[in-house]
Amino acid sequence: MALLEVKDLEKTYFNEGVSTPAIRGVSFEVNKGEFVAVMGPSGSGKSTLLHILGFLDGATRGEYRFDGKTMDDYSQEEIARIRNEKMGFIFQTFNLLPRTSVLENVKLPLLYSGVAESLWDGMAKKAIDAVGLSRRLEHESSQLSGGEKQRVAIARALVNDPQVIFADEPTGNLDSKSGQLVMEILQRLNEESGHTIILITHETYTAEHAERVIHLYDGLVKSDGRVNHRLKAKEFTK
C-alpha cells in the first residue's frame, strides 16, 4: 500500500466571489521510502499541493489518503498528532524560534508529543548529530549561518522519526554550497534511514537529487517519472 495516495485532487481558492483554481485534477502515489521531487514554476500549484499532503489544508474535490486515511477521518487534535509524529516539515525560511538555542529549537516538536520528557534531550541530540551540528548545541539560532539554520530545521523535522519529510524549497534561501550540504543530508536520510521525502522545488538541478520527479504545470501533472541521471551529493562528512 502506498503511503501517500492522491486521486483526482482539485483545489480552488474562493476570494471575494472570484474562484481561482490552483490544482485541477492531480493523481499519483508515493510509496514508503521514496524520494520524490515536485517541480514546477511559481503558480503551478506545488505549494498548495504540499499543504494538502501535509494535512495543513483540505482539498476542494478528489481524495488524498495518508497512510490509508483521509483528513476527514480525523479530529483536529488527531491531525495535530499526525503532523507531530508522522510528518516532518522543512521550510524555505527555516522558521526557527528566535533567541532560542539549537537544542531547544530541535526539541520543539517533542513538546507537543506524547514522548516522555526524560527522552527529549537524547532524541534531540541524536537528530542534531545526524545533521552534523553537535558542536553548536547551545548556540542561539541567530548566531548560525543560513545553511546551519536549515540543518537545525532538518534536525527538528527528524526528531520524532517521522514517516515522511516535507521539504518546501529547502535550498531556496541558501548559497549553492550550503544547498548542496542540505541535499546531501536529505539523500542520506532517504538512503540510510529509509525516510520518505517529498521535496518541493522550482530548480531542475535540485529536483534531480530525487529519484522521481513530478512536474506540475497550471495545476496539472505534466510528467511523472524517474530521474535518469540522478545527481548524487558528495559523501556527507560529519
Binding site: Q76, E77, A80, R81, E85, N95, Y112
Partner: peptide, 16 residues
C-alpha cells in the same frame, strides 16, 4: 503569526 503557524505545523493543537 509565523511562530504560531510553525508550532501548529509541528503538532501544537489549538488548545496548546
Amino acid at each position: 503569526t509565523r511562530e504560531i503557524g510553525l508550532r501548529k505545523a509541528l503538532g501544537a493543537t489549538e488548545k496548546d
